[in-house]
Nucleic acid binder design. Structure first.
Length: 802
RNA sequence: GCUGGUAUGGUGGAAUAGGCAGACACAAGGGACUUAAAAUCCCUCGGAGUAAAAUCCGUGCCGGUUCAAGUCCGGCUACCAGCACCA
């Protein structure tokens, strides 16, 4: 019997749509379950087979939860602001809003053909003014709480996008999006004080269920370190504070280094004898792009500051001061004490400039390389610290510094504030007015949303100004405070703004009075299960945790973390394990797969392809195995045994399958869940299937292959419908157990025979049975038995010596 | 350089808490059905070895612990990802 997947799938999708079966219920007494996938960016290229992997995975979970009686929220929307759309619009002389509309239409149609159980009544779009009204509203709250501020600073400037980038968006000195060179530019930028939350963002990772690799990556990015600030006195009389994680090595400091941007250089200008040389070095350092700075990272450069020296507070020794670009102005105090004996970078610098190396931790050979081990060393040449371990020395010196007013314990983070403005058109306008008299004035909340003006040209400029700056009728406004002439902020928000809170909007997507109602937030928070890509770990995932914590602090949301559980999927690669890309011409379009094999087959294959968390290569031929599963299942309907029972001889296999599929879905082991179903269907194909067995099987398969299972259910008159009945099967632990079991028998670790024994047979009985086996008897004959081991239900090992 | 992760047949991948390596698929080979092909069904399918068995070898490499190691420990190698002068 031929399975006409196109008709069947369309039929069921129409039924689901018409009945609205996937709409999350309002005011429900049921327990809630909120499943979330990262909403897509509707690009011009349309869907590729990578997209459905996470959608299908959480769809499987969401469908299972519905069958288990939960009120499930599984929403989708569009993260639609962004550069590719804008660039396409510029090139083709159409408005980005129109491009976005077209792209969404295509994406939606493609996703709907997969039969994912999204609640389309809650669809959101970050470019919709009704949506970004609340993005702007959150920005205003951040501003009012001092967490959004404008600052003149050196920023990452993408030469191709003509736009600044956040630190998180710079990859190996290049733009994360387009790969072009990123250079430093001094610009006045809106910043968000994510650093204010650094400690909580790191610490609260303990309270959520995230994969350890995600936790680790976020913690590394936040980069918390504990050390001390130490006050050196310069010969000018100024206090020059350094940050170090190794205050124990203070006696080994033989010079200091300040970053080229350190403010004291200007202050000391007339005391520095070689100020021209110093200035030349500063100029050179400022010209370097990030890429150059990393490329030359091995060869240290620097200039000795002549005329000013520093005094080590612990022994009053005078030491020289250098400037060098290996010290960053943005971390710590922008100045370090250099301990060449115990820091690799300082060691390299000292060797190059022929500076003294004083060993203060014994245990290595500091003439050969820096000894950085903190575990084994013992303090030497360190006055009061001599003889102590590194750990004890740290404690003692911190105490000494505090007591003598020479420094204090200090925690530092690598995390920097978030550069939040972009000089592009297609983003949320920043709702701020710049007034000569009043400074930065927020728009009144009643003025929101502040919409984008219609313009003829939204090309980015080289001047570093947003295209919005040219629209004088939009730019020139009255100051909301003093009503004098003022100008709007013309930069827009980055792509990450809209996605930093979108999951909240799904809870109450049509609310005009708040980003979501209190009741909805109370009921649906937090997201129970959020699946997304590893590439967002230090971007979207971190940003949204920051916004959420802020919203929690100002009483908007009821939980301090947005996502209770996070999982991550691997990429779908092209055949041969290379990345799919348009330029390689190896992109597989899901539309073609749906057409040829059907959505159920595509879904099954996406889940069967391999370990969900790892990358897997697409195989055009391999998908056939999944199509066969669908057909075999469909064909089971032809010869159903008229009985509602589960037959005794398959009972154990059926109950084990329920258990296995249930557990595997919860543990992201979709591939082995499907393998279990394949094994079971092989049994049914050879032994036939009863109505009772078919019911169980169809429900287990339903979350993976929702169309064909409903179809067979209907054809065989098994009941009202799988979704309609909501009955996830339960397994009976007793029925999973076998009465007899096959035991492997080894003689000194070598497999000799297999015997069948009673599950509850005693060790003695089993060993006796094993010895009675011909092959085993032959193998142990005439030898000393040293040991006899029985592992229950597994094997017997008889250890002999000749 | 640092931090994680991974390594299993021709391929994708299984293997609870150390207990029969290769589940489940794909491909390949053989057979049945067919005028033929497709589809379907059945058989074989890590390597060496044998007429068939027996037997030996085998989870990136080298060692170790154990009655027993893909799994644990020590030392490498390769690949992937993240970070990259963070003091």
């Amino acid at each position: 019997m031929k399975y006409e997947h196109l008709n069947v799938e369309k039929k069921w999708q129409d039924i689901w749509e018409e009945k609205g079966v996937f709409h999350a219920e309002e005011n429900s007494d049921k327990e809630k379950f909120f499943a979330l996938i990262e909403f897509p960016y509707p690009s011009g290229q349309g869907l590729h087979v990578g997209h459905p992997r996470p959608y299908t995975a959480l769809d499987t979970v969401a469908r299972k939860r519905r069958l288990q009686g939960y009120n499930v929220l599984y929403p989708i929307g569009w993260d639609a602001f962004g550069l590719p759309t804008e660039n396409y619009a510029i090139k083709n002389h159409v408005h980005p809003a129109d491009v976005t509309k077209e792209n969404i239409k295509r994406f939606k149609q493609q996703i709907q053909s997969l039969g994912i159980s999204f609640d389309w009544s809650r669809e959101i779009n970050t470019t919709d003014p009704k949506y970004f009204k609340w993005t702007q509203w959150i920005f205003l709250q951040l501003f009012k709480h001092g967490l959004a501020y404008k600052k003149e600073m050196a920023v990452n400037w993408c030469t191709s996008c003509k736009c600044v980038l956040a630190n998180e968006e710079v990859v190996n000195g290049a733009c994360e999006r387009c790969g072009s060179e990123v250079v430093r530019r001094v610009k006045s930028q809106w910043m968000l004080k994510i650093t204010e939350y650094a400690d909580r963002l790191a610490k609260d990772l303990d309270d959520v269920n995230y994969p350890s690799r995600v936790v680790l990556q976020q913690r590394n990015w936040i980069g918390k370190s504990t050390g001390a600030e130490v006050d050196f006195t310069a010969t000018t009389g100024d206090i020059l504070t350094v940050y170090t994680t190794r205050p124990d090595t203070l006696f080994g400091a033989t010079y200091m280094v300040v970053s080229p941007e350190h403010p004291y250089i200007e202050k000391w200008a007339d005391k520095i004898e070689n100020i021209d040389e110093v200035r030349a070095y500063q100029a050179e350092a400022s010209k370097k792009s990030d890429l150059e700075r990393t490329e030359i990272s091995k060869d240290k450069t620097g200039v000795l500051i002549k005329g000013v020296r520093a005094v080590n507070p612990v022994n009053n020794k005078e030491i020289p001061i250098f400037i060098s670009d290996y010290v960053l102005v943005s971390y710590g105090t922008g100045a370090i004490m250099a301990v060449p004996a115990h820091d690799t970078r300082d060691w390299e610098f000292a060797k190059k400039f022929d500076l003294p190396i004083i060993e203060v931790v014994k245990g290595g050979d500091v003439e050969k390389e820096a000894f950085t081990d903190c575990e084994t060393g013992v303090m030497v040449n360190s006055g009061i610290l001599d003889g102590l371990s590194v750990e004890d020395a740290k404690v003692k010196i911190k105490k000494w510094l505090t007591e003598n007013g020479k420094g204090k314990e200090k925690v530092n983070f690598k995390l920097r504030d978030w550069v939040f403005s972009r000089q592009r058109y297609w983003g949320e306008p920043i709702p701020i007015v710049i007034c000569d008299k009043c400074g930065y004035v927020p728009l009144d909340e009643s003025e929101l949303p502040l919409e984008l003006p219609m313009v003829d040209s939204y090309e980015p400029t080289d001047t570093g100004e947003s295209p919005l700056a040219n629209i004088s009728e939009w730019v020139n406004v009255k100051c909301p405070r003093c009503h004098g002439n003022a100008k709007r902020e013309t930069d827009t928000m980055p792509q990450w703004a809209g996605s930093s809170w979108y999951y909240l909007r799904y809870m109450d997507p049509h609310n005009d009075n708040a980003l979501a109602s209190k009741e909805a937030l109370e009921y649906w928070s937090p997201v129970d299960w959020y699946n997304g890509g590893m590439e967002h770990t230090t971007l979207h995932l971190l940003y949204s945790r920051f916004w959420h914590k802020f919203l929690y602090d100002i009483g908007v949301v009821p939980t301090h973390e947005p996502y209770a559980k996070r999982t991550s999927h691997g990429m779908i690669l092209g055949s041969g394990g290379i990345k799919m890309s348009k330029s390689r011409g190896n992109v597989v379009n899901p539309d073609d797969v749906v057409k040829e094999y059907g959505a159920d087959t595509l879904r099954l294959y996406e889940m069967f392809i391999g370990d969900f968390e790892k990358a897997a290569p697409w195989d055009d031929v391999g998908i056939k195995g999944c199509r066969r599963l669908v057909e075999r299942f469909y064909n089971l309907s032809e010869n159903v045994i008229d009985s509602d029972e589960i037959r005794k001889d398959v009972e154990r296999e059926v109950h084990n399958a329920i258990k296995k599929v249930d557990e595997d879905i919860e543990n992201l082991k979709f591939n082995t869940a499907i393998a279990t179903l394949m094994t079971l269907i092989n049994t049914f194909t050879s032994k036939g299937v009863t109505r009772g067995e078919l019911r169980v099987f169809a429900i287990l398969l339903n979350p993976f292959a929702p169309h064909v299972t409903e179809e067979v259910w209907q054809m065989c008159n098994l009941g009202e419908g799988i979704i309609a009945e909501q009955k996830w099967p339960e397994y009976d632990e007793e029925k999973c157990k076998a009465s007899t079991v096959e035991i492997a028998v080894q003689v000194t670790g070598k497999m000799k025979a297999k015997i069948i024994v009673d599950v509850d047979a005693s060790s003695d009985e089993v060993i006796a049975l094993a010895k009675a086996n011909q092959k085993v008897a032959a193998a142990i004959e005439g030898k000393n038995i040293v040991k006899e081991i029985y592992v229950k239900g597994r094997l017997v090992n008889i250890v002999v010596r000749p």
